[in-house]
Amino acid sequence: MAFTRRRLLRNGWGIGAGLLTFAAGWTSWELLRPLAANGAGGKISLGDPSNYADGTATFVNEGRLWVVNAGGELFALSQKCPHLGCRVPFCESSGRFECPCHGSVFDIGGEWIAGPSPRGMDRHPLSLESGVLFVDTGASEDGPDHGSKNYLSPAKGPACIESA
């Protein structure tokens, strides 16, 4: 194809339009992308790790998460059900997490037991700094796959929801 003025102009317009689209996309992304903040989305202190006794689940409202002690091992579990995002409450009578929306059930470590959830409850990374426990709510890792049964134990008592 011969290099003509018409071709140069056509390609020039095309490249210009492409650059403008890229610039508009980049600007929009920078404007609209969520910013990390304190509390939910940032790093928050959970205090002394010894506050969390074995077999307990403590709700931390600031981070919208549960701190659980599963057989001496601490986890920060997102309150959101991996299925469709409902808040998963801890059922004291059964000692399990039971989702009221669609009936997913998880053990004390957040591992999947039953229901439509595609995996266990998502976890936020914990860190210990000068004896104080911190959780990074800005980072999250997917919960354990189906089949993981490290913390599974028989239900302590009756379930809180009908289908569990």
Partner: peptide, 9 residues
């Protein structure tokens, strides 16, 4: 209320 899921949602 983000801490109270209605049944059903």
């Amino acid at each position: 209320n983000p801490n109270l899921t209605p049944e059903p949602a």
